[in-house]
């Protein structure tokens, strides 16, 4: 799989010529933050929908108690 590329072995790939910590550290920082951010945005969207559903339910119950 690595045949036609820059690397002779997986170990060489992960070592990054001695800069492994810095290269993988920066790629990892990006990966972690770029996974957390969309999850937080989705959670915010879900929370907004839940809040809306709760408000609507409360309104409905209010109406029903008034009617009865």
């Amino acid at each position: 799989m690595l045949g036609h590329s820059q690397w002779n072995s997986a170990a060489e790939f992960f070592a990054m010529g001695g800069y492994g910590f810095y290269v993988w550290g920066s790629f990892l920082a990006c990966a972690v933050l770029m996974v957390i951010e969309p999850l937080m945005a989705i959670a915010r969207q879900r929370a907004a929908l839940r809040e809306l559903a709760r408000e609507q339910l409360a309104e409905q119950l209010n109406k029903e108690t008034k009617e009865s």
Binding site: L2, M16, G17, G18
Partner: peptide, 15 residues
């Protein structure tokens, strides 16, 4: 995998 090593920064430039 495709981009070559850099002449002065080696693999570190991949950042």
């Amino acid at each position: 995998f495709v981009a070559p090593t850099d002449f002065q920064q080696g693999e570190g430039y991949r950042i």
